[in-house]
């Protein structure tokens, strides 16, 4: 377990060093000059924070500098940290003790990493002493069900699926029936990837959600959007549309083991008031960790 945490730390350190490490260097003990602001802007934008968020952060930082008479860049560090942290919505911790069934619907665009993330989540919940069942409701993408089967096998959790092309709603229904009779703690529902701009596919997703709601009391208890960490400004549009369609309650950021910085989480979390739940970093079952906003922001300045 410790090993896993360490590997995620290592992976994220790479991200930090690539982007925010430079912010830290920039924030060494020097005086604040006009060039400093330019460079800070460049770094934030290159971390995918986006034009608007970057401008917002810079403006706030400048206001602090003026109000508090800050003249050295190292003193700015805590100010920037606080502002960035304030943008990330804090979530109620997940209830990992209840005996009631908890259903999590996983949604996202094609290739964002839903299936892999579900496998990792299954392993994570299992590690927390929860019993888990997977619903393979992506019946569209070729062999998506097979992919989940392989992962379920590795994680040692049961999976309920159906024929390719069959109705995802029916699979969800079956899975929730099974979960209730087997007294399972957590059901994770894998859905087909879809671009948020596809009206029909978003309608279909709403239907899947409705079936979920009818098949178990209070379900889905959580709906998590899987966002590809290498995505740029489109992440906000994705989150907006998915939230509007299926009431997304949280976000999972994937692929943060490369050099991408995932800076769009700030705008997504802040503007849509969505907490980031997990960070996923690699191709192994253990490559997932609860998102810790404070640590994430602290890490930017290590």
């Amino acid at each position: 377990m410790l090993e896993r945490v360490k590997s995620i730390r290592d992976a994220l350190t790479r991200t930090r060093q690539a982007a925010f490490g430079r912010v830290a260097t920039l924030l060494g003990a020097t005086e604040i000059t006009p060039e400093f602001w330019d460079e800070l802007e460049a770094l934030l934008i290159q971390a995918d924070l986006g034009v608007e968020t970057t401008a917002d952060i810079l403006e706030k930082a400048k206001a602090h500098v003026k109000r508090e008479g800050i003249i050295r860049t190292d003193a700015l560090k805590s100010v920037l940290k606080a502002e960035l942290r304030a943008m990330l919505v804090t979530a109620e911790p997940l209830d990992l003790t209840t005996d009631d069934l908890r259903v999590v619907l996983i949604v996202g665009t094609n290739g964002s990493g839903k299936t892999t993330s579900i496998a990792k989540l299954a392993a994570w919940f299992k590690g927390q002493g929860r019993s888990v069942l997977l619903a393979a409701a992506d019946t569209f993408r070729a062999a998506a069900g097979d992919q989940l089967d392989v992962w379920a096998d590795r994680a040692g959790v049961p999976v309920i699926g159906g024929q390719p092309g069959s109705d995802p709603g029916a699979i969800v229904y079956d899975a929730l029936q099974a979960a209730q009779s087997r007294k399972v703690n957590v059901v994770l529902i894998d859905t087909a990837g879809r671009l948020h701009t596809k009206f029909n596919l978003m309608q279909e997703l709403k239907k899947v959600r409705n079936v979920t709601a009818k098949a178990a009391a209070g379900a889905p208890h959580e709906t998590w959007l899987v966002l590809d960490g290498t995505t740029g400004q489109n992440a906000l549009a994705q989150a907006q549309q998915f939230k509007a369609a299926v009431e997304v309650t949280g976000v999972i950021i994937t692929k943060l083991d490369g050099t991408a910085k995932g800076g769009m989480v700030f705008a997504v979390s802040h503007q849509l008031q969505l907490p980031i739940r997990f960070i996923a970093t690699g191709e192994k079952l253990g490559d997932i960790a609860l998102f810790d906003a404070a640590a994430f922001v602290d890490g930017l300045f290590e």
Partner: peptide, 12 residues
């Protein structure tokens, strides 16, 4: 390459 990719596209 995914059309939605952000700033990191260059490095990749």
């Amino acid at each position: 390459s995914d059309a939605m990719t952000g700033q990191d596209a260059v490095r990749t």
